[in-house]
Design a protein around this nucleic acid. Structure first.
Length: 587
RNA sequence: GGAGUGGUAGUUCAGCUGGUGAGAACGCCUGCCUGUCACGCAGGAGGCCGCGGGUUCGAGUCCCGUCCAUUCCGCCA
């Protein structure tokens, strides 16, 4: 080793020891006759000291030449500081430098390599290796490592084995857009990168592996968000001979173990909420349950009083914001503007202030009496001082809009504390979802999800498709879908039926999924599983909204890596070899 | 594919209804400083105001286009 100690190690117990350190120059403080240099490695900071007339002249000379991020190797004696720094673990000592060597100089870094950097996102990504020198980012990756290790430990202890599945697989029409890889040896044909190892893990169950997991990269070529990357990591799991209840117990166990190990938190049992209830009460299949403020439907109270907007609405629904009756005109206007933004798309917002003196003030006083408003307030369990916020319109749309408003109110009222964790299961998802554009049903989870046994007869009646429930479940924490899974179909006839409902001809079904259905004919066990979004889980544990700071080398929201500058054009020779001709070459 | 926000010094940003010097802080350079640790003090360098058009006597500022970044909607089984 080029060092005897790292930079967070030395203290008064090492007094008078001769040590060698190797690290990066963090800051220089040249006081004239005396020079202090802080050096930094991933472990911590140690102060170097040199003094004119005392230190060797070549040491003084070299130390004056140093710049930020120079890599140096220093030999010297551990001495007690004349003035100590209680903020540093090494703050009681310093190194009296006897020899210093510049192992590598550095250009001036383009941003400050400090916890509070002055660098913007773009610049940090271009010099990601410098960004990763910062404590905050490195700690995020250390957190990710610990979560991964704890996950492996838990699943191993429960009899799961980690099996790798291929990255070069086959494109399928269902689901997200695939990333494709041309095959040189099979000209004109393409591999696809896996959107998830779904079919392979099912085949491992057919193979009798009983319990499988993998912390694995998945690829989806869709537009990105702060919490979405084109390549992301899943904790992918599958178990044989299980019911939904077994899967929920096992993986609730995993998440509670992680909270215990990583955060030191003992979480209560996770509540279960049916999908229909989640949509009715929160307008979302991933409700943030850190706070209440559930939806209250008001149709029967508001109709027929001459207010055309409500009379013509399919659903009139509101939330009660505790203690907000004092909101000013300006604040109410802000909320109205919020729901009218194009992304939300509400036409307007009706409010009712439940005044402290028991009176009501609303934006619809023209149409409704005090008695009417009192009824609303009672139904919404409002007290004096509360504010009712009501939206109306087509059911699905208005629920989505009110969901956004509820989250906004949660933010405004400080009810979404990053250090508080509210976990729950959403269960009883619909099996199928109608797509207006394509005029057909799609699998809500994926085509291998099994229907609830009691709903099997509905598969024969197209008008009932939308009412079929699936053995599918999501885990939601703080309004984030961290994982989801299902009990799978394991019998060929049912899988064939499912694919035909999804619009596959028997020939297409055989071409796409014949291998899976054939496997089902060789003694496939009942099985089911789940996959967790590992990057999201890490950001949640780290209290961040973006997953990028938990990925060593992330891509920007156009899917570009601005450090290596990918994607990039390839040579004509490569294209020729792959038999590819570009039609729309970007100039 | 659509909407919002932003682009001015190495960096983060300010720059009002268009009107004589394009600014601050941090960073960088030079000098001074024997207990600093957000060191201090003095001085200095550093700018195609993203790019291209337009309006105007005059544009960092207004308009149009375009590129880049970012957030969201669509999309993501």
């Amino acid at each position: 080793m080029l060092r005897t100690h790292h930079c967070n190690e030395l203290n008064l117990q090492h007094l008078n020891q001769k040590v060698t350190l190797a690290a990066w120059v963090k800051t220089l403080r040249d006081k004239g006759k005396i020079i202090f240099v802080d050096i930094r490695d991933k472990f911590g900071i140690t102060q170097l000291r040199a003094e004119e007339g005392k230190s060797p002249p070549e040491v003084i000379e070299t130390m004056r030449k140093l710049g930020r991020e120079f890599v140096v190797q220093v030999t010297g004696t551990v001495i007690e500081r004349a003035s100590k720094n209680p903020d540093l673990p090494t703050g009681e000592i310093e190194i009296e430098v006897e020899h210093i060597q510049i192992l590598n100089p550095s250009k001036v870094p383009p941003f400050l390599i400090e916890d509070e950097t002055d660098g913007g996102e773009d610049l940090r990504m271009r010099y990601r290796y410098l960004d990763l020198r910062r404590n905050t980012i490195r700690k995020n990756l250390e957190l990710r490592h610990r979560i991964a290790q704890a996950t492996r430990h838990y699943l191993d202890s429960q009899g799961f084995i980690e099996v790798e599945t291929p990255m070069l697989i086959k494109s399928t029409p269902e689901g997200a857009r695939d990333f494709l890889v041309p095959s040189r040896m099979n000209l004109g044909e393409f591999y696809a990168l896996p959107q998830s190892p779904q079919t392979f893990k099912q085949l491992l169950m057919v193979s009798g592996f009983d319990r499988y997991f993998q912390i694995v990269k998945c690829f989806r070529d869709e537009d990105l968000r702060a919490d979405r990357q084109p390549e992301f990591t899943q904790i992918d799991c599958e178990m044989s001979f299980v019911t939904q209840e077994d899967v929920l117990q096992m993986f609730e166990g995993l998440i509670r173990y992680l909270f215990q190990q990583i955060k030191g938190l003992e979480l209560p049992a996770f509540p279960r909420m049916r999908y229909d209830d989640a949509m009715r009460l929160y307008g979302s299949d991933k409700p943030d349950t850190r706070f209440g403020m559930p939806f209250v439907e008001l149709n029967e109270l508001v109709k027929g009083k001459g207010f055309q907007v409500f009379d013509s609405a399919e659903l009139v629904v509101g939330i009660c914001a505790k203690g907000c009756a004092e909101y000013t005109r300006k604040q109410l206007d802000e909320l109205t503007e919020f729901v009218k933004r194009p992304q939300i798309g509400a036409k307007g917002l009706v409010y009712v202030k439940c005044n402290a003196d028991g009176t009501f003030k609303s934006s619809v006083d023209k149409f409704y009496t005090e008695t009417d408003l009192q009824q609303w307030a009672t139904k919404m369990q409002a007290e004096k001082g509360d504010l009712l916020l009501i939206l109306s319109g087509e059911t699905n749309k208005v629920r989505k809009q009110l969901c956004e408003l509820r989250l906004e109110m949660g933010n405004r009222l400080g009810l979404r504390d990053k250090n508080q964790y509210s976990c729950l299961w959403i269960i009883d998802f619909p099996l199928l979802e109608y797509n207006e554009e394509d005029k057909r049903f799609y699998a809500m989870h994926h085509p291998f999800t099994s229907p609830k046994p009691e709903d099997l007869p509905l598969l024969d009646n197209e008008s009932e498709y939308a009412n079929i429930k699936a053995n599918a479940y999501d885990m939601v924490i703080n309004g984030v879908e961290v994982g989801g899974g299902s009990i799978r179909i394991y019998q060929r006839p049912l899988q064939e039926k499912m694919l035909s409902i999804l619009g596959f001809s028997p020939e297409e079904a055989k071409a796409q999924f014949g291998f899976l259905m054939e496997a089902f004919e060789f003694g496939a066990p009942p099985h089911g599983g789940i996959a967790f979004g590992f990057d999201r889980l890490c950001s949640l544990f780290g209290g961040a909204d973006t997953i990028r700071d938990f990925i060593a080398f992330p891509k920007n929201n156009a899917g570009r890596d601005v450090m290596i500058n990918s994607p990039a054009p390839i040579s004509q020779a490569q294209l020729d070899e792959l038999g590819i001709r570009l039609v729309n070459k970007k100039a």
